[in-house]
Design a protein around this nucleic acid. Structure first.
Lengths: 372, 372
DNA sequence: TCAACTGACACAATCGATTGTGTAAAGTAA
DNA sequence: TTACTTTACACAATCGATTGTGTCAGTTGA
């Protein structure tokens, strides 16, 4: 008979050591092992040492499934986002994972692909995975919120971020868009602009409504009239920004400043201004919103609002952890609004004085090298 | 006595129904419930119907922890990436999550922050979470690979992507960088360039070494000499691209084409060319690598290589699932190399004929609107 | 008619960790 | 010395689902 073929590259299939193995080796009960590892007072220091040493020796790793099953709570947090692309969501997820992992939690991530049905399914999956809490940014097609009742009725901590369910009986973290619109417009005013236009987004979306409101607030504060002819509504794509700019420049009294509610439309507007021979910022200052990566590489770089993506993730996790620790005890729902950060770059640099409290020509993060 | 305060918004803390509950209600054993739900042959069709109906009525959801504990395999895949930022990793993760969820798996994600120690810890956590398989892109500081032995010795499926452990005894998915360098350079040749420079990255990184090799391959194929003075090495930042371009243009015989191994250095080079009054692509054609978001919004848009991020994620999951299904049986390790896609844009559009097999002025994904 | 089968379901062990309760032995106070 | 703690550990149930091994009634075949 031929010699038995050696199995492919040594797959030992070492089954991981369990508490039972340690108990057997030390001749004690599993109780002792468990309590020694969790530093229970009823275990003597000598025994604790022995157990710890053996655990190290065998490289013992607790089975989280078993632990979670018994305790009824896992060390997992669930995230549901529309998708993991672009600049915003990945950064928030980055912040979430970082904060969660610091607190000893891991993160299981789901995409809804902007689809309610998928969102619903994701919630079910997270529930059956026994996560300790759930973070959600709503899909664009979610208008019925009943599926979140299931989560709530289980007493499972739930925090929304960015795209939230409105109301004061939910826990949520958002960017203060109104403040963003306000500081952007005020900045333009400080740079000497007196006729400031606004490239606005769809007003049924809160973010755009709020940015516009902040814009109006700043004008009012400066004693300037709100002129609806200076507000151009669109879906905020690059080309639409250019189109908006064309409209504005075609009027008898064109603006000397433009606050765009998004970076892409700011870019389009800036390119259109350049095509028409205008200098930015001298003839018209332009600012955007979102701190997209490209805003630092345009000529000139675009002044914009940073959305504190990572902070948003961290804040959401903090809130969720508070809820988890409250453990069912009454907890007053809280809505957190993050202060946006104005990033002043050359697309608005008309005045010499740097504006107070704003960063001057700040670079975007992670720009420069991306080794892939 | 004052009336009892009503508890905050009705937290029923409904404990989820278990198989035991269903069994009790139907007066049958848990075995029957379990087997009915998993469509076991030993359960009669009538009973199956009854069980299914009751499960629906009570909205029964299996406890995945319990199931996984018993079966020894969870429906979770682990991902370890350096970070979730920039364009590359989020897109890959997007692809991974999409493919995994389609196959009924969920994804738990960990960041190593380019730190081996963290990478090691992440692996341990994933092991103790009893994931069914692990996907890894190495941290930049990982030069010792022993911590992966622990994974292998447990017989746990492991697939590397992008930043991989070299060798033919691992499962891995990468982009074919050499091919990318080759098609880029060939494209420049087709556009009529005869003196093509290369902005190269650190040669200890495989990606850059391979892109350079592809560049050399194309030159050799075209019968052109490789001229080391036309290859500028740097860390590939924007400013270094500009600096490289300065050096090239300062020579007696400047290039008429530049293949940059990264988009940022391509951008720097293009800006420097513009500063020196050169027209792109007429005087010098420039192409980059990675399809960064900004490459479509520059003037002119930059020809680049798409790295098939999502496909990479999907391919990695496919491979991992194969391993999982092999379930310990001998499996010949496989390395998958994805074909890069050349995106021809105006920064290289000198010839009239569109090059064969390349996309003409393609837009980047997700550019245009980002509602945040 | 009796053995061999099949269909439909129950019993009970099991996965690995946790925890309330029990119980010796040792220590302390009265 | 008696009663009462404290210390240090073991027993055994438990979390919820899975599964090998019965069991029993009704069929089928020779």
């Amino acid at each position: 008979m031929a010699p038995r073929k050696k199995q492919a590259p040594e797959v030992n299939n070492t089954s991981p050591v369990s508490m039972a193995d340690l108990a057997r080796e030390l001749g004690v009960s599993m109780t002792t092992i468990s309590r020694a590892l969790s530093d229970h007072h009823s275990i003597g220091p000598a025994m604790k040492q022995k157990v710890l040493k053996l655990a190290k020796k065998y490289n013992y790793q607790p089975n989280r499934l078993a632990s979670a099953l018994r305790k009824g709570k896992s060390q997992l947090l669930g995230i549901v986002v529309p998708y993991i692309e672009g600049r915003f969501f990945p950064s928030v997820v980055h912040g979430i994972e970082t904060a969660a992992s610091k607190a000893g939690y891991n993160v299981i991530i789901c995409q809804s692909n902007e689809d309610v049905a998928q969102e619903r399914r994701n919630l079910d999956i997270l529930l059956s995975a026994q996560v300790a809490g759930i973070l959600v940014s709503l899909s664009r097609t979610t208008h019925d919120f009943r599926h979140f009742e299931k989560v709530r009725s289980r007493g499972l901590p739930l925090v929304f971020f960015d795209r939230i369910v409105e109301g004061d009986n939910v826990n949520a973290v958002v960017l203060d868009d109104q403040e963003g619109g306000y500081v952007s417009t005020r900045h333009l005013l400080q740079q000497g602009c007196r006729r400031i236009a606004h490239l606005a987004g769809p007003q049924h979306l809160n973010i755009y409504k709020n940015r516009r409101q902040g814009y109006l607030d700043a004008l009012r504060e400066a004693g300037l009239p709100a002129d609806e002819s200076l507000i151009i509504y669109s879906d905020m794509a690059q080309e639409q920004g250019a189109e908006g700019m064309r409209q504005l420049l075609a009027t008898a009294n064109p603006p000397d400043g433009v606050f765009a509610a998004g970076d892409y439309s700011a870019l389009g507007a800036m390119q259109e201004a350049a095509r028409q021979g205008l200098r930015v910022p001298e003839d018209v200052a332009i600012s955007g919103f979102s701190n997209e990566t490209f805003t630092v590489i345009t000529q000139p770089p675009i002044t914009t609002i940073d959305q504190r993506c990572e902070e948003m993730g961290q804040a959401a996790v903090r809130l969720l952890l508070e809820l988890i620790e409250a453990d069912g005890r009454p907890f007053a729902p809280r809505q957190v609004a993050l202060r946006p950060e104005l990033l002043v770059r050359n697309s608005t640099a008309r005045a010499e004085e740097a504006s107070v409290g704003a960063v001057r020509n700040p670079a975007a993060k992670y720009v420069g090298v991306a080794a892939h």
